[in-house]
Design a protein around this nucleic acid. Structure first.
Length: 426
RNA sequence: GGAGACGUGGCAGAGUGGUUGAAUGCGCGCGACUCGAAAUCGUGUAUACAGGCAACUGUAUCAAGGGUUCAAAUCCCUUCGUCUCCGCCA
């Protein structure tokens, strides 16, 4: 959420953010409510101060009865104002949770992903001197998965890797985790079961009614828990309510967890292959930093993902997502897409986001400035480290050979027992 | 799942209805002493919101929420969390 003072002082900026991101504009209603709420606070606080003064005189007063009566009378007056205050504050709070984060001036303005802009392209689409196979053919012929059987057992949008593909997935996860550790990240394995409030605090949903997430989040029936869609959710709440020392920043976490998505809005999309599942694994980069460090950290975690692409020897490109595509809580967003030969297209493998202080306001995560002693909200950022099995798609397709075998990228070979190739007839 | 204990400031730890935003100790900041440091002494050390140009003032906060009362850290209820023992268990 945004600072109410910021909205008060920059209503036009906020209105514009609503417009370019495609969210309803509640600014005028917010400002009206805000004025009334502050009025009521002033009135009730003045009366409470008066009442406290009388209350303090009671223990030593010779005749207590008139003072008690007076105090009681003021108490009743306060109660009436308090009722209105509570109602107005609740309404204001709900509307404040519907105001989107202000997008960066650098972000392309646009309604949806068709307005995204390619920032850079690294490597060329892979050329083959044979007809390359699609991921599902490679998986079938190498006996690397069980699509029909697992569909019967576990339902749609589940997967099961076997043999060398399962090994490769584990190697990729381990590789990325170790890479991030070497760059100063703290490796942290996160729970997937969490409370709905933590998901809300990550700022992916609008308003203050938690039921809005039912469409996207798996709720665990008859419990107060749900399944987290990403480790970002847990990492975001890791320092909630804390005031961090300035020199602790930036804090860099490499979170690993199984991730759960309902994929309710994706019916019929990516139903074949390893691209989209209810459950997958993800290494997540998560940063807490000072707001002025945010751009630098954005480049840092974006570059980490680009390096991973290069270590996996994948042709890829970086996208600047448009204001309409970046989502409710983001300042700026860069997708990283890898080349997928079977689709003759670049496909998203990761998404790098600057959140500003938007999440920190929801979790109340702050730091104390050394020089001034001031307490300020931290900025947070997140990026994919690697998401599997989706990342296996470009890896096995781009590195395939005519016989259906797959070359292992050099950096992964030590984690694959020194093998340079898997699959094929051998 | 059963039984019990507990949740106070950065930490430790007093405090069971009335100037307690909270004793005391530790830590930390500043100052004095010192050539410098240690020790010692003095002094200071939460956050949010509202009002004010500001100095500052007010209100709230002793896990969270609600209740009783003129008055709640202190009494009652609910929730959350932590710990111990038993049971179960990868």
């Amino acid at each position: 959420m945004l600072d109410i003072r910021f909205i008060r002082e920059n209503p036009d900026t906020v209105k514009n953010a609503c417009k370019v991101k495609g969210f309803e504009d509640h600014v005028d209603e917010i400002l009206t409510l805000d004025t009334r709420v502050r009025e009521l606070k002033t009135i009730t606080q003045t009366k409470t101060a008066e009442k406290n003064k009388i209350t303090r005189e009671i223990p030593t007063a010779a005749d207590k009865a008139p003072l008690i009566a007076e105090s009681k009378k003021i108490g009743e007056e306060i109660a009436a104002d308090l009722a209105e205050l509570a109602e107005k504050e609740e309404k204001l709070n709900d509307l404040l949770h519907r105001v989107p984060q202000i997008p960066s001036p650098d972000a392309p303005i646009g309604a949806d992903d068709s307005d995204n802009v390619e920032v850079r392209r690294v490597g060329e689409p892979t050329k083959f001197d044979f007809t390359p196979r699609a991921q599902w053919d490679l998986l079938d012929m190498n006996n690397w998965w069980l699509p029909e059987k697992i569909g019967q057992i576990c339902g749609t949008r589940t997967y099961c890797l076997m043999g060398e593909a399962a090994e490769l997935q584990l190697a990729i996860e381990t590789y990325v985790i170790q890479k991030l550790i070497s760059k100063g990240f703290t490796f942290i394995e996160c729970p997937s079961i969490t409370k709905p409030q933590t998901i809300f605090d990550a700022g992916h949903f609008m308003g203050s009614d938690l039921s809005v997430m039912n469409n996207d989040v798996f709720m665990l029936t008859d419990t107060d828990r749900c399944l987290a869609g990403t480790a970002e959710i847990i990492l975001n709440s890791l320092h909630s309510g804390e005031i961090l020392p300035e020199n602790a920043l930036p804090i860099k976490y490499a979170g690993f967890s199984p991730c759960f998505r309902k994929e309710a809005g994706a019916a019929g999309r990516d139903t074949r292959g390893l691209a989209r599942f209810h459950q997958f694994n993800k290494v997540e980069q998560y940063i807490y930093c000072k707001p002025e460090q945010s751009d630098e950290m954005h480049e840092h975690i974006l570059n980490n993902l680009c390096e991973v692409m290069e270590d996996l020897e994948l042709p890829y490109r970086v996208i600047a997502n448009s204001t309409g595509d970046m989502g409710f809580n983001k300042v700026k967003m860069n997708d990283v897409e890898a080349w997928v030969p079977s689709e003759n297209a670049y496909k998203e493998l990761g998404s790098c986001s600057s959140i500003g202080t938007f999440q920190a306001r929801r979790t109340n995560t702050r730091y104390r400035e050394n020089a001034t002693g001031d307490v300020k909200f931290v900025a947070t950022l997140n990026n994919t480290g690697i998401a599997v099995p989706r990342a296996l798609v470009p890896v096995i397709e781009n590195h395939q050979n005519a016989d259906g075998s797959v070359n292992i990228p050099k950096k992964l070979q030590p984690l694959m027992g020194g093998r340079t190739k898997i699959g094929g007839k051998h």
